[in-house]
Amino acid sequence: MLPHRSGTAVLIAAFVTILIVSALPVRAGGSLVMYCGVQEEWCRAVSTAFERETGISVAMTRKSAGEVYAQVKAEAANPRGDIWWGGTGDPHQQAANEGLTIEYKPANLNELYDWAQRQWQEARGRTIGIYSGALGFGYNEKLLKARGLPEPKCWADLINPAYKDEIQVADPNSSGTAYNLLATIVQIMGEEKGFAFLKALHKNVNQYTKAGAAPAQAVNLGETTIGITFMHDMIAAAQDNPDIKTVAPCEGTGYEIGSMSLIKGAHNLENAKKFYDWALTPAAQELAAQNKSYQTPSNKNTPLPKLGVDLSKTKLIDYDFAKYGSSEVRNALLKRWTDEVKNQPR
């Protein structure tokens, strides 16, 4: 028998009350539900700034781009989110192709850089660039000197046998960043030569990580000497560890377009549109650099981050987002990479 009857009854009553309260639908709470695909700090700064500006309360959830895509897709029959802000462009493009998001023409479209406008046109208005970041690599100078290795400057340098087991990059099957690299190499060198390069690189790679930015952390901790990531990830890590040097490859490089989409069937469509317009203003885009994210903002009037990569000075390739974002090309490239590169002995 339980010792204190009345006490137990009070406990049970309290418990049931909490349970009922928690069972009440909560989606009414936020008048804008935002799925955020960038770093937590930036997400938080953006949602509070929008709240302050408009008085619309924002319910923000941070997830990786792939996770947001999986969630938006799973929820398609009855969407919970209103706006999907941030994260690499491929899953946004995929969602646009599958009709999970809707078209919208922002007020200040012509203030944006060409790459952002072009992406918007290619996606028939269903997704728009909010920032972009170029691929590159970084190295831990201390480790490089300790091992007496030369400084890499170009993609071609990375297949130097001296770097055996010193390079880390993500697995394109799990990471959008690494798929971006795969597509970039194919576009720079052509498919056959590109795969020859990737096979040679394979001999130097110590690990294919799951997440795209993980190699930057490994360079920071000294677990690998060289890491291939987006340059802004490497720059962010360099803020923490001055030994990290970031390199823009001499042959030119590909880039991602961090995007934003309106979710089809959004419960708070009007607020989502307000956010959409606001997120493309310089005032909103400035928040990135203030929160340790050094991507290039898509509005021409937004000042470039001092620490960031000036895309106009980096040699960028003419990345074909429509072609390399399509499921057929992607699946074919990934299959070839898995068979001919990843599954080969090192």
Partner: peptide, 23 residues
């Protein structure tokens, strides 16, 4: 829980993953 968390109900572990992601 990664797929089940929402803005009001974010879990400690998903927050920790975010921090690990960010280094």
């Amino acid at each position: 829980v990664i797929f089940l968390v929402s803005a009001q109900y974010n879990m400690a572990t998903t927050y920790i993953i975010g921090r690990v992601d960010a280094g």
